[in-house]
Write a protein that binds this DNA or RNA. Structure first.
Lengths: 200, 200
DNA sequence: TGGTTTACTTGACAATGTGTCAATTGACGC
DNA sequence: GCGTCAATTGACACATTGTCAAGTAAACCA
C-alpha cells in the first residue's frame, strides 16, 4: 500500500508508535526515536522530512495495522438507528485507546504545525462521517428526537466523541473503557433518541 | 487583592490579556508582549518569573475584572435543579468566550509546563464544583435521571462543558453562543433530567 | 577486480524561543 | 550629591527541529 517500504522505514514507524504509546504522546523527540530504533537522528530525516510527516505516517501505519474498516463493519450492518449509534460508539471507544499515543502527539503538534493540524482535522472529519451516518439512521427510523436537525445532532454527537472528552473521562475521572461505553451510549441515546412519531 | 501592583505590572497584564484574546491564545511570545507594552523583554521578567507565571497571573487578573462570582449568582439562586442546570450552562457559555484567549494559552502551555497544567487543572476543578452543585440540585429535586449516580453525572456534565467542546462547536461547527446555549441545555436536560419519581 | 550506488553516520550549524546574568542608565527622594 | 529602584541593553545558555557536507561501508554489477 505504502509507496516506499524500506525495512528501516518500517522499523522507525514501529518504534514511533510504540514510544508514543508508552509516553502518552508527550515528549518523544526525534533523537529518542532514532536512538530507540538503533539509527542516527539524521537517518530518520532520510525517511521522513519532518516530525509532523513522521507522525502522520505513523497514524496511517497504525490504522492499517488496526484495520479500521473491519472495526466499523458491525456498526454499518446495524438494522436500526439506535443500534447503529450504540455500535458506533462501541467501536470508537475500543479504537481510541489504541491510537491514543499517536493521536495525542498529533493533537499537540497542531499548535506549532499547520500540516499536523490539517492531518488531524482530516481524521476527525472521517470520524464525523460516521457520526452523521448514525444520526441519519436515527432520522430515517423516525427516532431522532424532534428538537434536533441532522446537522446539529451530527455536530453534537461528533463533539461528544472527541478525544479530549475520552481523555477527561478516562484519565481524569478514572472511567474504564466499559464505563465510557456504557455512559456515552446512555447519554447519546437520551440526547438524540425519541420514540418514533405515532402519526407516521 | 494582588500583593504587588506596579503600574507596569498592570500594563503587562492588560497587554497580555488583549493579545491572547486577539490571537486566540496562540503564538504570543514574551517579546511580543514586551514590545506591545512598550518595555523591554527583560522588564517582563522583572514582574513575572516565567511565561507560565504570567499566564496564570493574567487568568486571575481577568477573573477579577469579569467578576466571576457575580456571574454565577443567578445559578446559585435558582429554585429548581433544572433551572440551576440551565442557568449554570448559560453563565458558563457567556464566560468562555471572554476567557478563551487566555484559557487556550494556558491549555497549550500544559504540554511543556507542569505549573501551567496545575493552574488549569485548578480552574477546571472549580468549574467541576459548579457542575456537581447543579447535579446535586437535580438529585435533591428527585429529577436526576435514575441511571445516573451524582458522581457519574457530575463527571459527564463537567466533560460536556469543557473548553475544547465549546471550541469545536463554535469554531469548527460555526455555532453561535446562542446556539451553544440552546443545544447544550437541551442535551444536558435530556441526558440528566427525568420527571420526579411519582412514588415519592 | 574495481567502480558505482545506496543507506547510513558523523559532526557542525542555523533558527527559534525561553530564561539568566551583569553592567549601565535615569529618575526620584532625601 | 547619594543611594535606590525600575528599567535597559546586550550577551549568553539551553533545548529542539531541521539542514548540510563529508565520509563510510556494504551491495550490486560489470
Amino acid at each position: 500500500m505504502s509507496s516506499d517500504n524500506t525495512e528501516t522505514r518500517t522499523k522507525i514507524l514501529d518504534t514511533t508508535v510504540r514510544m508514543l504509546e508508552e509516553h502518552g504522546g508527550r515528549g518523544v523527540r526525534m533523537g529518542d526515536i532514532a536512538r530507540a530504533t538503533g539509527i542516527s537522528r539524521q537517518a530518520v530525516y532520510l525517511h521522513f522530512a519532518s516530525r509532523t510527516e513522521l507522525l502522520v505516517a505513523a497514524t496511517r501505519y497504525l490504522d492499517e495495522k488496526l484495520d479500521v474498516d473491519r472495526r466499523l463493519a458491525p456498526s454499518r450492518e446495524a438494522t436500526s438507528g439506535v443500534e447503529r449509534l450504540a455500535l458506533y460508539i462501541e467501536s470508537w471507544a475500543h479504537y481510541i485507546p489504541e491510537i491514543y499515543g499517536v493521536a495525542k502527539a498529533l493533537i499537540l503538534a497542531q499548535d506549532t504545525d499547520e500540516a499536523a493540524a490539517a492531518a488531524w482535522d482530516d481524521r476527525m472529519q472521517a470520524m464525523r462521517d460516521g457520526c452523521r451516518a448514525a444520526i441519519e439512521a436515527l432520522h430515517s427510523d423516525g427516532t431522532l428526537a424532534s428538537q434536533w436537525t441532522t446537522k446539529k445532532a451530527t455536530d453534537a454527537l461528533w463533539t461528544m466523541l472527541l478525544v479530549p472528552n475520552w481523555e477527561n473521562l478516562t484519565v481524569k475521572c478514572g472511567w474504564s473503557t466499559r464505563q465510557y461505553i456504557r455512559w456515552m451510549t446512555i447519554a447519546a441515546q437520551r440526547t438524540f433518541v425519541d420514540a418514533p412519531d405515532p402519526t407516521d
